[in-house]
């Protein structure tokens, strides 16, 4: 992570009081070397985020940071006052992956985020979070999960503000709502590893090549428009979903948590800018304008507005 953008104020110099949604930092979706992960979370200890999701959610072969390491990182973050949630794999195919999932679900210290119904099954009867890859498209689905112990859900990224409004009105009592407010959009998961394919490597001998792409590997159209990002078995949007300009509506809808998805550079500055907007030190538009240059390939917010996900509707 680079030094904080010069335009950003440190939390110490902020004036306003934080109100409205809490901030969370999503799991790192890319494959970073362990040193980078450690350095990242050392910095996170001092960032104004309330909740930190930890763990590998994309590929079980990524082994730079092991389960014990994640727990150690979690202990440090918890000691610095963060709520820590262990996040889990989104696509579970092999028994070895289920074994690891069971270890995470049985951990005694931390809440767990289920990113697949397999994890929901293992977590039944204890409080859990469902991530954006679990399809919760209506309140009846939410009610089913609430009966199993759901504490918090993340709005699937393709759903609109109007749909969220309905969900908020109808959600079971005590269930928290989190919105994926900043980051490249998770669009698809596959058995195939697209990064290995791009390198002409078989998946079973991928040589861990994801480590060469700390923000994923960009896919452009033949007329040179940045379009998608390959991240192992996951496909993301090239554009970064940014809902910071929607802060008034997010508040009005009583959203509990805004999630920021880590990127290789500038995550600290992005968190600070969200924090400043929440404190009223900057308007959402000012903070968004300052975030704009930190996005690898421009912004989008179409899903929120009921348009194509790649569209940018809000004027920044």
């Amino acid at each position: 992570m680079t030094a904080t953008d010069s335009a950003t104020a440190s939390p110490a110099s902020s004036t306003g009081t934080r109100s409205g949604p809490r901030l969370s930092l999503g799991p790192i979706s890319y494959y970073w070397p362990k040193d980078q992960v450690d350095a990242f979370y050392q910095q996170v200890e001092h960032l104004p985020v309330d909740i930190v999701y930890l763990g590998e959610t994309i590929c079980s072969k990524r082994n730079e940071v092991r389960f014990e390491d994640w727990l150690a990182i979690g202990e440090r973050l918890a000691a610095s006052g963060k709520e820590v949630v262990l996040s889990t794999l989104s696509l579970l195919e092999a028994e070895s992956e289920l074994l690891r999932l069971r270890a995470i679900c049985e951990n005694e210290g931390f809440l767990v985020e289920a990113n697949d119904m397999g994890a929901v099954q293992l977590l039944r009867g204890r409080p859990f979070v469902v991530g954006h890859s679990v399809n919760v498209y209506n309140d009846r689905s939410l009610a089913v999960l609430a009966r199993s112990g759901l504490k918090r859900w993340v709005l699937p990224v393709e759903l609109t503000a109007d749909c969220l409004a309905d969900m908020q009105r109808l959600r079971p009592a005590g269930i928290e709502t989190e919105v994926y407010a900043y980051g490249r959009l998770p669009l698809a998961y596959s058995a195939r590893c697209f990064t290995a394919r791009a390198r002409n490597l078989p998946k079973d001998d991928c040589r861990y090549c994801c480590i060469d792409y700390p923000d994923g590997l960009e896919v452009a159209t033949q007329d040179d428009q940045g379009f998608l990002v390959l991240n192992g078995i996951q496909t993301q949007s090239a554009r970064t979903n940014n809902l910071l300009p929607e802060l008034p509506r997010l508040r009005e809808l009583d959203v509990d948590i805004l999630r920021i998805s880590p990127q290789a550079q500038g995550t600290d500055a992005i968190v600070q800018l969200f924090d400043q907007a929440l404190r009223g030190d900057k308007t959402p538009a000012e903070a968004s304008a300052a975030i704009q240059p930190l996005m690898p390939s421009g912004a989008c917010d179409g899903y929120w507005h009921g348009e194509a996900g790649m569209d940018q509707v809000a004027q920044v």
Binding site: L187, A188, Y189, T235, A308
Partner: peptide, 12 residues
């Protein structure tokens, strides 16, 4: 892609 978890189409 895993069916039910692919939104490439709605992205475009």
């Amino acid at each position: 892609m895993v069916e039910g978890r692919c939104i490439l189409s709605s992205y475009a």
